[in-house]
Design a protein around this nucleic acid. Structure first.
Lengths: 332, 332
DNA sequence: CGCGGCAGTACCGGATGTTAT
DNA sequence: AATAACATCCGGTACTGCCGC
């Protein structure tokens, strides 16, 4: 049933050469004649040979694996699942495996899985014990977005240009007739909030408008969104509203209705991070597609570049979220 | 900076014994005196010794890893993220690593990562090429829910008792005054749909009621949900409604409002799979908590039992979803 | 002579430096 | 000067056997 997996020895015997020749031939290294290489490849193919990863790792101290650390807590957001599979896809294309790392307790100082070639982390803070442990391994680390308080300790980062994206969204709203755009923003503490807050303020100033904003939690409750939106709509004469925190589109829509506004008509509503539910709401809600999958793939590719290349790869790669226009910003 | 990682030799030298003794002592195997063991453990601790996984794997043909295959497509559902971390947590507790497997194209026949001790798959079909490849490895496989068309090829399964859960939900609705409960069901093709459809039919028959149901997609669009709900509400006199497919709570709520019904009052509405958004809708929507995290952990534990135990472990473990009552089924 | 406790050593499967052809 | 064979080593595991009591 299980005739034991073929090894280099088997392939060597089948091809009538030494195991060293096989090793070289399979890795396309110089030192074997084309004919020999050919013969070896054929024999390997025939025997269904697959290198034994542990054996190779033992010798080379490379593991063909990368550790993936998603942020604790907010992990349920579909964004991170997409991100994860972006990493996995890109890794697969390079013959690497992705190890999904556990969220360790803050007082757990045990180092993370030791046998990886590098790490991908996303939306991380150096305050997180798990992230610190990863940075302390001294292995290559690529971060999706900057690591707050640890920017200089990562090998490279892939970051969004939130400022440009938000400006694009604001411009879109004015294109559709908006004259006064309010914003519901996430709390301080991440690069994302900082970028959004600043970009909103600057854009408003440049357009001679008045900034109208409220700050709520990262993952707000319906009530939080509701009161922020109700508050804005009752206190100010706004004709467009951007709600940034994840999951706030549905409650914002409800609050707007309750305030007697017709969304997509006398009130333009846009979310920030695109979510599947936005397409299902009525009206469907305009938002920015962060393309988490591509973002994740970019992280892995940067990591691969860092681990393989001798020359210093780019330290940073920038991605601009794409505007997805839906009925909620149709305009009158 | 990096004084090379300590090996068994280093520990042996420090403790003044042979490497074999160290190997035995560290693995708590018989053959070393308590004092020697003590000395070895102290030395290992002192040197910060960690076993070299590849070296151990090379010798033992065990890898300390499990492959996790999530279903392609519907991966964005938060359910699967929770499930994945359930697996990861349980694996971490056992010193195992979880490799997140890629979704291969249907025509890709390359075998999945070879160096894992077993696989966890969830909501799988034998029609899926990736799943077939996993079953073909001959390695232990534990499935979350049955593998359609491959029940007999998995080592063990963890399954939900959807029938009991749905009956619990239906009983809850009648407790709250419902007399005629309609259902929006997922399409045929999974054990889940089959169980729900059958349980709904049986329960209705037992209670002398009339089954009123519509079938829509697994991951329906808002329009699909909308027409199914509108159709039911206009055609039949129902006072309660269960919508099973994921993501249908929000559109169902909207459709009910549009039909002039007061949800939680003259119409009780419940979803099946609990989702974060249910708590954010108004009224918040009653549903069943599948506790994906615990479900995932259970899968890993069963896999560990299968791989470690010599005796045949349980082939199946059953979990009953927990009812989460919210305002949408408050009753008049 | 039997037995517990430990040292010695042959592997596991590949990568690579060295030596022959 | 190219190729290929040979010998080692990577870091463990597990088997064999020596030693003293």
């Amino acid at each position: 049933m299980t005739p034991r997996k073929p090894t280099l020895h088997d392939v060597a015997a089948a091809a009538g050469v030494s195991i060293a020749a096989v090793s070289f031939a399979l890795r396309d290294k110089a030192g074997v004649s084309p004919e020999t290489r050919e013969r070896v490849l054929a024999a390997a193919q025939e025997l269904n040979y697959v290198v034994n990863a542990p054996a190779r790792s033992l010798r080379t101290a490379r593991y063909g694996t990368v550790g993936l650390q998603l942020p604790p807590g907010s992990t349920r957001l579909p964004y991170y699942t997409d991100f994860a599979f972006g990493v996995v896809d890109a890794a697969d294309a390079r013959g690497l495996s992705v190890i999904l790392l556990p969220h360790r307790a803050a007082d757990d100082t045990t180092p993370p899985t030791a046998f990886v070639d590098g790490y991908v982390v996303v939306d991380a803070t150096a305050e997180d014990a798990g992230i610190r442990a990863i940075l302390d391994t001294g292995r290559p680390v690529v971060s999706g977005e900057h690591v707050l308080g640890g920017e200089d300790r990562v090998s490279a980062s892939v970051v969004y240009d939130h400022a440009t994206a938000l400006r694009g969204l604001l411009d879109h709203l004015t294109d559709r007739g908006a004259t006064r755009v309010a914003a519901v923003l996430p709390p301080d503490g991440t690069a994302w909030s900082r970028d959004l807050t600043r970009a909103y303020a600057e854009w408003t100033a440049e357009h001679g408008g008045i900034a109208v904003s409220r700050t709520i939690s990262f993952v707000p409750t319906a009530d939080e969104v509701d009161s922020a939106v109700a508050d804005i709509l009752s206190a100010e004469e706004v004709d467009a509203l951007i709600v940034a925190p994840s999951g706030s589109a549905a409650p914002a829509l409800a609050a707007a209705h309750r305030a007697g506004r017709r969304v997509g008509d006398d009130l333009l509503l846009a979310a920030y991070v695109d979510e599947p539910v936005h397409a299902l709401l009525s009206p469907a809600v305009t938002s920015l597609d962060l393309d988490a999958r591509a973002f994740g793939s970019a992280c892995l590719e940067l990591l691969a570049a860092v681990t393989e290349a001798d020359g210093p790869a780019d330290r940073e790669r920038v991605i601009v979220p794409r505007l997805v226009v839906r009925d909620s910003t149709a305009g009158a």
